[in-house]
């Protein structure tokens, strides 16, 4: 599989920059004036207590919510309001806190669906299932099989994902996101509800994705051990406000972060 390039962005430069973004639902402020960036090739963690606005921030990045104020620059281009499929088109993939797989489809079809953007053959070829459409179907299948091998889920390929155990569902969901060959991969609590062994597996996959495919990753996670081990830089949110940003060691010793987690009043 070809490592997707972030176009002209060199490793270590900002792939995505968020500037002064604010988001509110009615009167409730979910995100207030948050700025940060994600550099190409890094693993960026976003942490914070429940209700800190982490998921909302991911939703803003992949176009699910439109921020009221602020600017987002992706691959050097400032971005106006966009729909989620446009974000996907631009190279942003995503997994969800509560697994959001297509439950009625097999694991294979779920991951194949992730290749929808890469498939071009027209309607009539598909109708006939010959020529270019068939060739494309087979070519995409080959690529999907690579991902299946990578994630070690060969044995559940043809099983409806609704019937799979939770840990495997999370893995299939990661596979679907990888199938998009994203430049930026957003993972929303990829290890929530997993046991220690599953967490270790998942951590290994995340590191491998980052290393082999060079995919830039932003992840939300509550397990501090995992966060400190995996990430290059950590962003800390509390009540929708950025309270710290830096390498893990820095953040760990930051007084504001400790206060937020211990529930000190502001």
């Amino acid at each position: 599989m070809r490592a997707p390039s972030g176009r002209d962005i060199a490793a270590g430069e900002a792939l995505l920059a968020v500037e002064n973004v604010s988001l509110a639902f009615g009167g409730v402020k979910a995100i207030s004036d948050v700025s940060f960036d994600i550099r190409r090739g890094e693993i960026r963690a976003i942490i914070g207590p429940n209700g800190a606005g982490k998921t909302s921030l991911l939703n803003v990045i992949n176009g699910f919510y439109q921020p009221q104020r602020g600017r987002i620059t992706f691959k050097g281009r400032p971005r106006s309001a966009m729909r989620p499929y446009e974000a996907a088109l631009g190279g942003i993939a995503r997994t969800f806190q509560n697994v959001a797989l297509f439950k009625g489809m097999t694991a294979l079809d779920n991951i194949m669906a992730g290749r929808a953007l890469k498939m071009r053959r027209g309607f009539f070829w598909q109708l006939l299932w010959i020529g270019p459409a068939l060739a494309e179907e087979i070519e995409q299948r080959r690529r999907v099989e690579e991902i299946i091998d990578f994630l070690k889920i060969q044995h559940v390929r043809k099983i409806q994902v609704g019937k799979l155990p939770y840990g495997l569902q999370k893995r299939v969901e990661l596979g679907r996101a990888l199938a998009m060959e994203p430049d930026l991969l957003l993972l929303d609590e990829p290890m929530a509800g997993m046991n220690l062994e599953e967490k270790e597996d998942m951590s290994r996959f995340i590191l491998d994705v980052n290393a082999y495919y060079g995919t830039t990753i932003a992840l939300i996670e509550h397990d501090m051990g995992v966060v400190m081990d995996l990430s290059d830089r950590v962003l800390v949110l509390d009540h929708g406000v950025k309270i710290a940003d830096g390498v893990p060691a820095e953040v760990q010793s930051n007084q504001a972060v400790i206060d937020a987690y211990l529930g000190l009043s502001h």
Partner: peptide, 27 residues
């Protein structure tokens, strides 16, 4: 042929979870 190929997966994705479908790039 349609339902076992790209179109079919697109439709089923829409059926099973429209939000996730949109996020993997299905309009």
């Amino acid at each position: 042929n349609l339902v076992r190929g790209r179109m079919g997966r697109m439709w089923m994705a829409m059926r099973d979870m429209d939000i996730a479908a949109e996020i993997i790039g299905i309009r």
